[in-house]
Design a protein around this nucleic acid. Structure first.
Lengths: 191, 191
DNA sequence: TAAAACGGAATGAACATTCACTCAGCATGA
DNA sequence: TCATGCTGAGTGAATGTTCATTCCGTTTTA
């Protein structure tokens, strides 16, 4: 196995185990075993578990952003753009349940809260599309006049909740339902 | 300290520490110390940590339901009833951040998922108000025709996200904002 | 004063991380 | 060309730490 392959095997195994069992349900020894690698080998690629966890997250972000942006057209009406981004994101979560579960684990941990704080205070988002959309919508009086953080909460809250329900098997989302859900999200924030 | 007091001290300490640091950041020894109690004493009241955790949750549910129901009037219009329940819940979360954080910890853990699965499959909710409201709203064509689980996700998703943002200090919710948020939730589910 | 409740040191299990060692592959020199 | 030595990735047993839980001597209660 090449060096690159080995790193990828570790990432894959860590992702799977953490997504499924949480950070504390995925000991390094188990990750090593699933990656078919010695326990010590992981430490040749990642300084420690914390760093493995945050690098996994960074990898994921970089993988997601282009997918969300795909087919996004700035000249379309705001509502249409919102629906495009929203369905894209929800679809991504449903098609990549492991990614979604990993994101949830990360966000519900001290890592995630810190990360979020940095982002909000430092304004250093990795994906400007939603923010720009909200700002434009508010200034053009199309979207309710809430602080940006709340517009995010009002849009992503239901989106994430529905994705979770689908992935946990409490409901089955098809294309029609996905569209209607995102439209409902839009109804929540539009004026 | 009386026996009852001791139990309450343990519950309070466990609640505080778990809400703040998560299940894994709140060792039994630390809980004991904060409750000013020997480590072994906890085990006289709770068989083990899992049982402590789930009983804490049950206590919380029983404490919350009456607060949410307070002032609820079945003869009011559906929209008004929804706003009443919603603002009550959001207000409760904001006034009891520890309770909220504990609920989040619980729901994002294997305990919570199992609990939720039981609830949804067994239809054994502890609080029927929201469900009844949604069912009535759907059948009277006032609320969008989504499966019940999705109506919950669409309502609670944003509610929980905004509560979290407030508690983590990303935004400050006042009475006006709370009302507008719940109205936005309503806009999301109403036809 | 017998019984129940406590306290907290002791125990053992589960981990993250380390480190001494192996060995495949490559370079060097004869 | 082949023998020899070197390098550094890879390994997994060993280490040290952090818990949950237990156990027994002590204190409180009735």
């Amino acid at each position: 196995m090449s060096k690159q392959d080995k790193r990828e095997e570790i990432v894959r195994a860590a992702m799977e185990l953490i997504a499924e069992h949480g950070f504390h349900g995925a000991p390094m020894a188990m990750i090593a075993e699933h990656a078919k690698v010695g326990a010590g080998t992981i430490y040749r690629y990642f300084e420690n578990k914390d760093i493995l966890i945050t690098e996994l997250y960074r990898d994921l972000e970089e993988k997601m952003f282009p997918v969300i942006r795909e087919g996004y057209e700035l000249n379309k009406p705001i509502r249409e753009r919102f629906i495009h981004l929203g369905t894209g994101l929800l679809r991504y979560f449903i098609e990549n349940p492991l990614d979604f579960r990993y994101l949830e684990q990360f966000h519900n941990s001290p890592y995630g809260v810190e990360h979020r704080r940095d982002k909000i205070l430092g304004e250093k988002e990795g994906c400007h599309e939603f923010r720009d959309l909200f700002e434009e919508g508010v200034s053009r009086q199309i979207i309710k006049d809430f602080p940006l953080v709340l517009l995010f909460a009002l849009s992503f809250g239901p989106l994430v909740s529905t994705a979770r329900d689908h992935i946990l098997g409490f409901v089955t989302l098809d294309d029609d339902l996905i569209t209607r859900i995102i439209e409902a999200c839009w109804d929540g924030i539009k004026k």
